[in-house]
Nucleic acid binder design. Structure first.
Length: 253
DNA sequence: CCAGACGTTGTT
DNA sequence: GTCTGG
DNA sequence: CCAGACGTTGTT
DNA sequence: GTCTGG
């Protein structure tokens, strides 16, 4: 699954990597080695540009990097208090769940990450791992987003929120956990972001090639506390024999 | 009809 | 907003 | 995801 | 044990 990740690239770098424009307006959060639920994050969306009256132009699309808050708040929510419970959406059910289906059909995004953290349950304390692409590229987690209107006196301010899709862990990832974020290979980015494709069913399966290209390493327990936030959080640490990943631990029988 | 939910993970 | 449960 | 709080009265 | 906050 995905409840914590690292995102340290600035919007300009991400815009280049995702063939998008920087739509953050200088409001982007800085480098973050310990992104946690409800924090501000960067995401990539593709939308039909709107004119001054708010009408979308169906003939063109623009891909941009945006600032969102992690934890989806549906437009009908009374307040934002449920956001922390909605940081993930199961890919198996996202199209059917009332809280997610509109977003899954019409408002998909990519959530770029340097890598994500996973806590391996076991004897004693859980061991955190960092999982990232071996080549330094960003991974693109499949996401959905929503707009919630915050009333401030007479003003209504949009709050953009998002959730990351999860799927069954496959390959090497099963050694650490039985769920993982849905990471999309580059050749599925456009289809995932396509605002005119209401049914993304074909894109919801985990991709073995993407997973095979991931690196996985145990990291310091310091990542547990979000007060810690520095580059060393993603550094490998040595493990005792008894704490090594157990490949069969989560194999389904 | 109205009221209440609307989510995921992990653990037992 | 929309569906489910009573 | 993990960490940290979890409470009231009265007095300053 | 369970909820909230980040």
């Amino acid at each position: 699954m995905c409840g914590r990740y690292a995102s340290t690239k600035n919007p300009a770098l991400l815009a280049a990597e995702f063939d998008a424009v920087d739509g953050t307006g200088g409001e982007a959060p800085g480098p973050d080695y310990n992104v946690a639920p409800t924090k501000r994050v960067l995401a990539v969306v593709e939308r039909h540009p709107r004119d001054e009256e708010g009408n979308a132009d169906p003939g063109t699309v623009e891909r941009s990097v945006r600032v969102m808050r992690w934890g989806l708040v549906p437009h009908w929510a009374k307040d934002t208090s449920g956001a922390a419970k909605m940081i993930n959406a199961r890919s198996e059910s996202v199209l059917a769940k009332p809280a997610y289906r509109d977003s899954a059909a019409k408002r998909r995004c990519l959530v770029p990450a340097d890598g994500w953290y996973e806590w391996q349950p076991g004897e004693g304390r859980k061991q955190p791992y960092f999982i990232n692409p071996g080549d330094g590229s960003s991974l693109a987690m499949a996401g959905i987003w929503s707009v919630w209107w915050q009333q401030e006196g007479d003003e209504r301010r949009p709050v953009i929120t998002c959730a990351v899709l999860t799927t069954d862990a496959i390959g090497e990832m099963t050694a650490v956990h039985h769920r993982m974020p849905l990471v999309l290979p580059r050749d599925r980015w456009s289809a995932w972001l396509d605002p005119d494709r209401p049914d993304p069913t074909d894109l919801l399966a985990p991709d073995p090639a993407v997973v095979a290209a991931l690196e996985l390493r145990p990291v310091s327990m310091r990542v547990n506390s979000i007060r810690n936030n520095d580059p060393s959080l993603v550094d490998a640490v040595a493990l005792g024999e008894s704490e090594k990943p157990e490949p069969t631990l989560f194999e389904l029988s």
